[in-house]
Design a protein around this nucleic acid. Structure first.
Lengths: 241, 241
DNA sequence: GGTCCAGCGTGACATTGTCACCGACAGGAG
DNA sequence: CTCCTGTCGGTGACAATGTCACGCTGGACC
């Protein structure tokens, strides 16, 4: 799987002024800011920048220092591990109203980023520089609480990834993915076997075999780059093993 | 694998007064306390309690609320996930000078503990109540920095567990364990195949097969409950695959 | 001695990972 | 339109791992 590097062009789509519309959008997604005192709120908006990134660009590579903490207004990012042999596992996804914890973590202990991150869709957000992140932690209770929440909630979610990878069969984990889509009301997925494999940390061949089996049992119908979920009940039943 | 529940007897080995000797011991292991102001230091020692726990007792079970945060003076704790089928993976170990991050995490977001924890050796330490942990975070810069360091450093270590479980062969991971022992100067391990399996998240049979293979290749010699590391060079070489 | 049990060995089979290679399809270039 | 090229998916063979069932052994205890 290959991702475009973040280009200068993409970086240039940034503006320094935060519009009132953007502030309103931010406040609904990051309610913590409302509880801060007016002083901090102004400091915050003055210090952060609005950015837009296209889909499929690499945000942070293994071993890099993190240059910015990004708070997402829209879109989704994926953080994953890459093995020397080229296999992947996704550790977690970042949605609107969240920020990348690993960035926060490696900003806090000055370490390097222990994984890779890419945009899965076009992404909009505010970025904050590492020194601000650190300073505000010590000074602003609301900001501190926000960062803490990020760290501790991700810890639990990454632990559940360990659990899945170590204990669960791959067909069950694929069924789980499908069940999540069904829960969102989607009965048709635009996804390749290779992408599913990268998600669950397996290889394409294994995913293909299992999907073929699903298709024979009538759970799904597959075509190039697309999967129809045809038997919701059976999928949900399998996913709960 | 079965662990004794923490009994009332064990709990009663607590005292409220912290001796000057214990304070000195604490300060060498947790240097952050030295940088705090005198006011906080007194508050801290007045609020925490000294505890001793025997080896092999369960500290925290899956889904429980955490009653205390423990800062270890001595001994080692193990935090692990347990599958419905009875398999285990250890997530990390806690040594002197550290504290259980998961406890910290679930204290901070009031969640429940997403794993199990046991003492692997007799353990001594100071315990702090959840409300103190939370209050100090907001008020004491040094304490805050300490807790933050715990969270963010564990995040990276748990991610490396994901990586190992998802990508590495089990023989390589066993060799890694052995290489770590060799680095500590230990050429003889008192450990059962089942314990090794719980560590790397596999099953006893698989570990037995691989150890038999190691023995045939002259890397180790096995006897009941014990493993001699006889070919350090080959072990280190295999561990670095 | 005899009993019990934790620790370990093992064969048979299911699942998963890896490698090599293939064909099918889509989107452009000519 | 045909041809080319890269992506997508299928497949067979084999290695590694997980699971199940069972049996053996050494040591503790009566």
């Amino acid at each position: 799987m290959h991702y475009t590097r973040l280009s200068i062009n993409a970086k240039q789509r940034m503006g320094n002024m935060i519009s009132t519309h953007q502030r309103a959008e931010f406040e609904t997604l990051f309610p913590f800011i409302r509880q801060a005192d007016a002083d901090f709120i102004e400091k915050f908006y003055a210090s952060c920048r609005y950015v837009e990134l296209p889909s499929g660009v690499s945000i942070c590579d293994e071993g890099q220092q993190c240059s910015q903490l990004t708070l997402l207004l829209d879109g989704v990012g994926r953080v994953y591990k890459l093995s020397p042999a080229g296999r992947e596992v996704t550790l977690y996804r970042i949605h609107a109203g969240e920020a990348c914890v690993l960035t926060a973590s490696c900003i806090m202990n000055q370490g390097s980023f222990p994984a890779m991150a890419v945009t899965e869709t076009p992404v909009r957000g505010f970025t904050v520089s590492p020194d601000k992140v650190r300073n505000w932690i010590c000074q602003e209770a609301q900001w501190q609480r926000f960062i803490f929440g990020l760290l501790s909630s991700r810890l639990a979610s990454i632990i559940s990834v360990v659990e899945e990878v170590a204990f669960k069969r791959i067909d069950v984990r694929l069924a789980q993915k499908f069940a999540l889509s069904l829960a969102r009301g989607e009965t048709s997925l635009q996804v390749t076997h290779a992408e599913l494999a990268a998600d669950v940390g397996s290889s394409r061949e294994v995913v293909s075999r299992i999907l073929k089996d699903f298709a024979m049992r009538g759970l799904i119908e597959t075509s190039r780059g697309q999967i129809e979920l045809t038997d919701a009940e059976a999928i949900v039943h399998l996913s709960s093993q």
